[in-house]
């Protein structure tokens, strides 16, 4: 029987595959046990693996991460869930001060093979604090990897790689597309390399770099501009940090134009880092200024306003045309 899954099912299957393979993996967070998580990413795991390995934590994000530090030092592989990225900030101190530093602080004596999963991003008409994209906050921290999948195939392969990684990984899941589409993916465990981007579409006219739920919006914009004879090359970054610089630098050398699309706020966002790298490594190939289509430097609006905030295919398509005409 074909294994056709959406992203949230792919996450679930990755956890199940790896928990079968590795008895040191424990999964916990708010409501992840009996209920299987508010998005059901951990559904069925407690029943299958028992309450010792899959359990509900008290409602405290800092301690969910902080106890994970202790568990990882003591030989387990915690895969913890923070219910929403907007609730990760109570754990900010643990993540920055300890998760990201323990290997360096102890010169390799203590390492933290742990994964922090969190649904992120807007577009699901949610309450305040449930729609944020603050990946740049974490990508800025030395010692932390930040991974964002955009398809069921990538979600499973990258999550398994994150679990097997000897270092801590923040795994951000674009909840807007949790159930948007399905793919046939391998039923058994497989890994996709962290730190490697993927060319989603090849093209000649400009390079578009994006990730998460925005990749689909970029693809929609691409269909719109193709009707006008413009062929973008689309790169899904997949890992925000450490980012695969070579992927987009080589592409920009070919196309001469770069557009970054992210739903995080514009200023100091990951796009700024990508543009710096392009300037450092492909400056003489540029035929137009590298450009961004992003969320605004505003608080993420409540649902009646989020359609304005999130980059739309139309806004992306218009910018593509401007960039090609430059």
């Amino acid at each position: 029987m074909a294994n056709i899954l959406n992203i949230v099912q792919a996450v679930n299957q990755a956890l199940e595959n790896e928990m079968e393979n590795d008895p040191t993996i424990v999964v916990y967070g708010e409501d992840v046990g009996l209920e299987g998580g508010v998005f059901r990413a951990t559904a069925g795991l407690q029943k299958k693996f028992g309450e010792k390995r899959v359990f509900d934590a008290p409602l405290a994000e800092s301690a969910i991460v902080g106890t994970g530090v202790g568990m990882a030092i003591n030989g387990l592989k915690p895969v913890v869930e923070l219910q929403f990225m907007g609730f990760s900030y109570p754990a900010f101190n643990q993540i920055i001060s300890h998760v990201a530093r323990m290997r360096n602080r102890s010169r390799g004596r203590y390492t933290l093979p742990m994964v922090i999963r969190a649904p992120y991003g807007g577009g699901i008409r949610a309450l305040e604090h449930h729609s944020e994209s603050t990946e740049a906050l974490y990508a800025h921290i030395p010692g932390l990897k930040v991974v964002i999948p955009s398809t069921p195939y990538d979600a499973k392969g990258l999550l398994i790689a994150a679990i097997r990684d000897p270092d801590p990984v923040l795994f951000l899941e674009p909840k807007r597309i949790y159930r948007a589409f399905k793919q046939e993916i391998p039923e058994n465990a497989y890994e996709l390399p962290i730190g490697k981007a993927k060319i989603v579409e090849e093209g000649e006219d400009l390079t578009i770099i994006s990730w998460g739920a925005m990749v689909r919006e970029v693809q929609k914009a691409s269909e719109m501009v193709k009707e006008k004879g413009i062929y973008p090359e689309i790169i899904d970054l997949r890992t925000i940090s450490p980012m695969d610089r070579e992927s987009f630098v080589e592409s920009v050398k070919k196309t001469g134009r770069a557009l970054i699309v992210h739903e995080a706020p514009k200023s100091f966002g990951p796009g700024a880092e990508i543009i710096s790298v392009i300037n450092e490594k492909a400056f003489l190939h540029l035929e137009a200024p590298p450009t961004r289509v992003t969320g605004f430097d505003t608080t993420f609006p409540l649902p009646r306003g989020e359609n304005h905030y999130l980059p739309s295919p139309e806004r992306i398509a218009k910018t593509i045309e401007d960039l090609v005409k430059y």
């Binding site: 424990v26 010792k52 390995r53 800092s62 301690a63 991460v65 902080g66 106890t67 994970g68 530090v69 202790g70 568990m71 990882a72 030092i73 003591n74 030989g75 387990l76 915690p78 101190n93 643990q94 001060s97 300890h98 323990m102 602080r105 102890s106 004596r109 203590y110």
Partner: peptide, 25 residues
């Protein structure tokens, strides 16, 4: 013995995690 933990109080959570892991294992 874990390394020095400068951020006040934060090490208590690591201790709790080590203890919970003992129970699990």
């Amino acid at each position: 013995v874990l390394p020095v933990s400068v951020p006040i109080g934060s090490q208590f959570q690591h201790a709790a995690g080590i203890g919970i892991a003992n129970n699990i294992k």
